[in-house]
Design a protein around this nucleic acid. Structure first.
Lengths: 207, 207
DNA sequence: GAAAAATTTTTTAGGCAATAAAAAATTTTT
DNA sequence: AAAAATTTTTTATTGCCTAAAAAATTTTTC
């Protein structure tokens, strides 16, 4: 049996990602060639393709790493801060926006998001979605807390509600990164309108 | 002054789109080269690029055309069918899903959606978004009808609510096209869970 | 209505992503 | 240590996309 081969593979993966991180940060993904990443990582260009499929695949893998940080930050900063679901949702969205914009600029996020949809079925598309799911679960847990405090109806599924709010937040995020001139304050205000209108939609006798 | 030049341009645009439609339908966008489209349209490959930017741009322009049909269909089939906002939202989503899946398969829709985000600031990315907006407005108008019938609270903005529901629907649509095995029945059920949880979220004393 | 000017398309050339297949190198097994 | 299996590299090709020069065509001017 072995071990060396696996270790070398893990090593190459790490080196490729490390090289890509540096080069993307310096010149952006568009100006960075696969060949340059390969050179810096000490492998051939074809090997980069073998490991990550496409250049977007490399980018997605990089974002997946940063998302793990985001997940920790979320689990640290979200709980116990909100008294109602609207405030909770806004904090959730703000943490994601802040983290995203600190990490990469909007143009690159557009590419990331596009890749996550186009490559939804690839290995890294899936890991991206899985992290989204885990983020949503942090929200779900907080909703359960609010339910225990009677700030959210006990009749709804916290899981369903968390996923739905995550969806709304996600579309707002797409909207935010789609327009270079949109500020986080504007995005927050728009999200607030979403939440207010949707939570206040049904008249009391219809619920 | 002129006219001939403009007419020839419009003509080339039309011919390129017509050629692309046929070739995409026959072999799919991946297997269709820009050069093949250009040949069929009687122009050079560079001209296709000059007119539509990228192959995704051509695809987006084609989808924008079909979306105009969808808009008509929506304006024809949505109004006056629903007594409550959840039913309205589900019908809205069903019409979009049906139209989409009749027109193109999921793999291609993933490319379209990815392109609409990646090229959000291009000419055709914008026209795509504009049609989304018009679709949402059909929904807004129906919400206003429901408000007049006291099925939706008079306190919320019909516009904001329409946009928010559209967002939710849009994420469900992305989810639907992201997984080849997901049926429209499953997607509808998931959307229903979104709507029920979100509309029922707040306890009566919190509204 | 012909020459000049302006605009648009085509040709030409090149960079790069992505894929496939053969060749070479390296690890694992016997 | 040789054979087998696996993985990377080399090599070659296709196609998207861009830029710049050349050619063609329309519009304007006289």
């Amino acid at each position: 049996m072995s071990g060396l081969r696996e270790k070398q593979k893990a090593d190459r993966r790490r080196r490729i990602l490390e090289a890509a991180r540096k080069l993307f940060a310096k010149a952006g993904p568009d100006a960075t060639t696969i060949e340059a990443i390969a050179d810096a990582a000490g492998v051939s260009g074809v090997t980069v393709h073998n490991y990550y499929g496409t250049k977007s695949g490399v980018l997605l893998a990089l974002v997946a790493e940063s998302d793990r940080e985001l997940l920790e930050k979320m689990a640290r900063e979200l709980p116990g801060q909100s008294d109602d679901v609207i405030d909770l949702a806004r904090r959730f969205a703000a943490i994601i926006r802040d983290h995203a914009i600190t990490f990469l600029d909007k143009e690159i996020w557009r590419q990331v998001f596009a890749a996550s949809i186009a490559e939804a079925n690839s290995r890294f598309g899936k890991s991206y979605h899985s992290l989204d799911h885990q983020l949503a679960l942090v929200l779900v847990r907080e909703i359960e807390v609010l339910q225990a405090r009677d700030a959210v109806s006990p009749d709804v599924s916290a899981y369903d509600l968390g996923k739905a709010i995550f969806s709304l937040q996600n579309m707002r995020f797409v909207n935010f990164i789609s327009f270079d001139e949109m500020t986080d304050v504007e995005s927050d205000a728009a999200f607030l309108r979403d939440l207010r209108s949707i939570f206040g939609a049904l008249p009391p006798d219809r619920r």
